[in-house]
Each structure stands twice: as structure tokens, then as C-alpha cells.
């Protein structure tokens, strides 16, 4: 029972970390970033690079974030800014980009499954159960990500400008806010966050060129049911992630793997706002 509880909480934490980069991009740009899966993968390979160079495993996280930001900034300027009026084409272009980046990774690192060093390993006793220390750490990471987002959006001027662009872009521009700059920063930050998320989840499994793909659809669905709200995203991660854990435990893992996608699609059909309130 305690295992189950911890599984639900840590799964929700992982999902939250994975989806937050996508959410911020979707919120500001109304664009679903299909390259999100590859960004996660790049985060994983950042960890691998750190392992190869024998650096401290913790260093993989800032490295992944910086790599993601730079890559995101480049993609936004080179491709996405032409596609804001064509959101469906933006899906396709980011997907094509994902294919290209995925192949580049294969050329650079090979197809095989590889392992990166973990910053923390072993289990601790919690609530009478032995539980993976790193999974517990992910809860803290999720809280840190959420807190950072909250501080950035509510506490800084660029955060306020970002919220203004989300709510009403023409009005924001009329007030002198450079929405093109806001988009650049947002996409770059969202990509950084996605790569960081890749580095976060790498210690849970292994590194391979397709490691991001299974997360992609779950992340989309969670973002779609959350509207623009990080709070709604947190709730969605808890509820749908919880359902996934329960289905995997009591039915079978394959059904579990489908839970988020199917439940979210049905939820949106019945309640288009999903978990978003207001």
C-alpha cells in the first residue's frame, strides 16, 4: 500500500517534470512541440556525455539545461517563428526536426542502449517501505521546478510579460511588449526544461535514441487537459498518473501505459477544459 502511494506520488512528479517545458511552450505559443521527445533524449545524452568525461553526475543537469536553451533558441529563430499562424504545420515541422535530431544522435552515439552514472543510488526506508532514493529525490525536483516556474512567472517582469502574452498577445504588443522576444525566451526556456527533464529521468532507466518517444504522448495529453495552468497540470499529473499506476498494478502494465492517453482524450471529449478551472 505504501509502495503504491509512493509510486503514485513519484510518477506524478516525473510526469510533471516531463510536461512542464511543453506546457510553457504551448501556453505562450499555442504550438505543440513535437520535438519534445527528442529534447528529452538530448537531456539523456547530456548525462551520458558527463559519464564519458567522468565528470560529477550532478553536472549533467545544468549541462542539459544549457544545451536545451541554446538548441531551443536556435530552433525558434530558424523555424518556428515562421509558423505561428499555422499551428498544425508547426506540429509537422517540429516532428521533422525531431527526426533529424534523432538521426544526428544515432550518428554521434550509436543505436545501442547505454547507461549513465547516477548521482544517487540505493534505497531508503520511508513509511515502512524501502524505496528508491532517486525516485524520492524526483519529488523534490518537481517541487523545485514548480517553485522556479512560479517565481519566474509571478515574481519577474519577463514573467509578467509572458503571462500577458499568453492572455492577450495583441494587447501586450500594443503596450510595448516585444512578443517575439517573449516567444524566443519561452521556447528556449521550455526546451531547456525539457532537456533538464531528460537528464532527471535518465537515472531511472537507460539512454537510447528513442528514450523520449514514450513520454511524448503522455506529456501532450497532460498539457492539453491542463490549459495554461501549472496548478491544473499538477492535478492532472496526480490524477492521471495515479490512474496509470493503479492500472499498471492491478490490470497490467500495457493497459497502464495507455491510461493517460485514453483517459485524457475521453476527458477532453466530455469536458473540453479538462482540469483547467475558471
Amino acid at each position: 500500500m505504501n509502495y503504491l502511494f509512493l509510486d503514485i506520488i513519484t510518477t506524478a512528479a516525473i510526469l510533471f517534470i516531463i510536461s512542464s517545458g511543453l506546457l510553457i511552450i504551448f501556453g505562450v505559443m499555442k504550438v505543440i512541440n513535437f520535438a519534445h521527445g527528442v529534447f528529452l533524449t538530448i537531456g539523456g545524452y547530456s548525462s551520458l556525455v558527463v559519464t564519458r568525461f567522468d565528470w560529477d553526475p550532478w553536472f549533467s543537469m545544468p549541462l542539459a539545461f544549457v544545451v536545451g536553451c541554446l538548441l531551443g533558441a536556435f530552433i525558434e529563430r530558424a523555424i518556428l517563428r515562421f509558423l505561428y499562424h499555422r499551428p498544425l504545420d508547426a506540429i509537422l515541422a517540429t516532428w521533422g526536426l525531431g527526426i533529424v535530431l534523432g538521426q544526428l544522435i544515432i550518428i554521434a552515439f550509436g543505436r545501442e542502449v547505454q547507461f549513465a552514472d547516477r548521482p544517487v543510488s540505493g534505497a531508503v526506508e520511508l513509511l515502512g517501505a524501502f524505496y528508491s532514493q532517486y525516485r524520492l529525490l524526483l519529488i523534490i525536483f518537481a517541487v523545485l521546478v514548480a517553485a522556479a516556474m512560479w517565481l519566474l512567472l509571478k515574481g519577474t517582469r519577463i514573467g509578467l510579460q509572458t503571462r500577458a502574452v499568453i492572455m492577450n498577445e495583441p494587447l501586450a504588443r500594443g503596450l510595448g511588449i516585444n512578443s517575439s522576444r517573449v516567444r524566443l525566451i519561452t521556447f528556449s526556456f521550455g526546451a531547456g526544461l525539457a532537456c533538464l527533464a531528460g537528464a532527471f529521468i535518465t537515472p531511472l532507466s537507460s539512454v537510447d535514441p528513442n528514450m523520449g518517444l514514450p513520454w511524448l504522448v503522455s506529456a501532450f495529453m497532460l498539457v492539453l487537459v491542463s490549459g495554461n495552468s501549472f496548478l491544473a497540470l499538477a492535478i492532472a499529473c496526480l490524477v492521471l498518473g495515479g490512474a496509470q499506476v493503479l492500472a499498471s498494478t492491478y490490470i497490467n502494465p500495457i493497459i497502464g501505459g495507455l491510461t493517460i492517453a485514453v483517459l485524457a482524450a475521453l476527458l477532453l471529449r466530455l469536458r473540453p477544459k479538462g482540469f483547467a478551472y475558471d
Partner: peptide
């Protein structure tokens, strides 16, 4: 911006 405070609206200007 309906969902921002008065002060935030003013800051944006």
C-alpha cells in the same frame, strides 16, 4: 488583462 491585478496591468504599460 482581466486576470491580472490592477497594478500588474499598470506595470505592463
Amino acid at each position: 488583462f482581466q486576470d491580472l491585478t490592477v497594478e500588474e496591468n499598470l506595470r505592463l504599460g
